[in-house]
Design a protein around this nucleic acid. Structure first.
Lengths: 140, 140
DNA sequence: CTAAAACAGGATAAATACAATCTAATTACT
DNA sequence: AGTAATTAGATTGTATTTATCCTGTTTTAG
């Protein structure tokens, strides 16, 4: 019942990128050093974020990575969803799962509500606020 | 980000026990057959539940297992907590974890709230209600 | 145009954790 | 005693997670 380490790495990467001036690139190596993350593994994670359209990459000298969308538009729920795929805290909540008494199962109902409650919290605040560069930060 | 299968087995076991007449024993083998759970693995799970004081066991002929407390006093959160230990959806939320800026970390704050929200839902309803032998069931 | 910088991506290895099984022992009832 | 049931530790099997390696491709500085 834990997020993977890769999810945390991704969160910290997005957090790092969110605190940069808009449009600026930073090398993934720098992220790995600053956040003390294993460099090669982080590269994989960045690829996932890039394929999902959260991060933009540029190769070659002066290359690096940056957000592909505004930090205001990204939440922890988004990042975790990208890295781990659609979340299902129990197999019976996953898409395509078949269970005879799926509809009447009260356990499933509770698990579902618990999952929704968790995801709601993970999606409540965006990375502008998390990175502390949100204008309304004081008002939160 | 999933409960272990063992957690689900435990939930289904408690559910099965909750629907029995109070005080009655049932063999763990019967539970494994009815719920289609691997018998030997379920035995392990029952042991965990027994050590935690949720289930009572009796050996020998006419033996079996039964709830050690009333179904009203058990929630899914309890069962999962027993099987998986204290839940921490990220290492930084676990007891004894040390992190320099633990206090100001806003990510940690969100993860914590998400976890609490989930646990609150998992603890909202008890097994009397879940097993359908709750007087107030219709009113839920 | 070439060399270096930086990401891309597949393959693979190492480490963990999860799930399941096996064997033998203990307990309790008849 | 004999049988039925749980107890417990050891062990095996499997899947997932984490991490690394190597080679390739793109970009740009010089």
């Amino acid at each position: 019942m834990q997020l993977t380490r890769q999810s945390e790495y991704a969160i910290r990467t997005i957090l790092e990128l969110s605190s940069l001036p808009e449009g600026e690139f930073i090398q993934s190596r720098t992220v790995s050093v600053r956040q003390e993350l294993p460099e090669r593994f982080l590269n994989k994670t960045v690829q996932i974020l890039a394929r999902a359209g959260l991060v933009e990459t540029r190769r070659g000298m002066q290359g690096g990575i940056r957000l592909a969308v505004k930090p205001e538009a990204i939440t922890i729920a988004d990042v975790v969803g990208v890295v781990e795929g659609k979340i299902a805290i129990n197999p019976c909540l996953a898409d395509g799962y078949h269970c005879a008494n799926r509809s009447e199962c009260r356990v499933r109902g509770i698990l579902n509500r618990a999952q929704e409650a968790m995801l709601a919290e993970l999606g409540r605040e965006n990375f502008a606020g998390l990175a502390g560069n949100d204008i309304a930060e004081e008002a939160v």
